[in-house]
């Protein structure tokens, strides 16, 4: 049961960074590319990409309650930065507000995740720049449609934070098996369902 939930959480976190990574990359590249075309390419993916984070935090809360509180409150100001960036970025992208607001939002989110990575690894603050660099690369691959490279940059974006997590011993931080068993009935069918539906959104909008 513990393994199962690590896999569920891992899938959601990897899914979030692999997908939302190119959103943030797109935001970071926006000042250097044609605005309308760049945003139009991202549009059908956008909402779907960001909700992976919502699902990941939900699972973190229910399945790893004693990890979630420590993790988030232990990096309080970093998450304030990530969330403030997310608010600006999501509002600016969806409403087609000014490009610089999209860029600023994306920069705040990426630097925020970078700072979180540095925090997890107890590394110097400079490490924070890794995430914006990877996101920008991933965004560039997505925007220039280099699909053979896409899985590579997706993994590069997705892996640093889950790998940094693997140093944490989760035994004793997880919920009781009664709670985990109940949630498994919901989480396991829903994730593939959402993947299929999100894929349909992309397929329909490119018709």
């Amino acid at each position: 049961m513990e393994m199962l939930w690590l896999v569920v959480l891992g899938t959601l976190v990897v899914g979030y960074f692999a997908l939302a990574g190119f959103d943030y990359g797109t935001g970071l590249l926006l000042p250097f590319r044609g605005r309308d075309e760049t945003l139009r390419r991202m549009t059908p993916f956008f909402l779907g990409n960001e909700v992976w984070l919502v699902a990941a935090i939900g699972v973190l809360f229910a399945a790893f309650p004693r990890l979630e509180g420590e993790l988030l409150s232990g990096a309080h100001s970093t998450f304030t930065l990530v969330l403030a960036g997310l608010v600006l970025f999501m509002a600016a992208v969806q409403l087609r507000l000014w490009s610089w607001l999209v860029f600023t939002g994306a920069l705040m989110v990426s630097v925020g995740w970078g700072l979180f990575l540095a925090h997890l690894l107890h590394a110097p603050v400079v490490v924070a720049l890794v995430m914006p660099a990877l996101f920008a690369l991933h965004g560039w691959v997505f925007q220039t449609r280099r699909w053979t490279l896409f899985p590579v940059t997706a993994l590069l974006c997705a892996l640093p934070i889950p790998l940094a997590f693997s140093s944490i011993d989760v035994a004793g931080l997880m919920a009781h098996t009664d709670t985990l068993g109940l949630l498994a009935w919901v989480a396991i069918p829903i994730i593939p369902l959402v993947v299929v539906l999100q894929w349909s959104i992309v397929a329909i909008s490119s018709r």
Binding site: V54, G58, F61, A63, L183, A187, I190, V194, L197
Partner: peptide, 10 residues
């Protein structure tokens, strides 16, 4: 968590 998975995500 059921809210985020069943409701929000879907």
């Amino acid at each position: 968590a059921l809210e985020t998975l069943i409701a929000f995500f879907l």
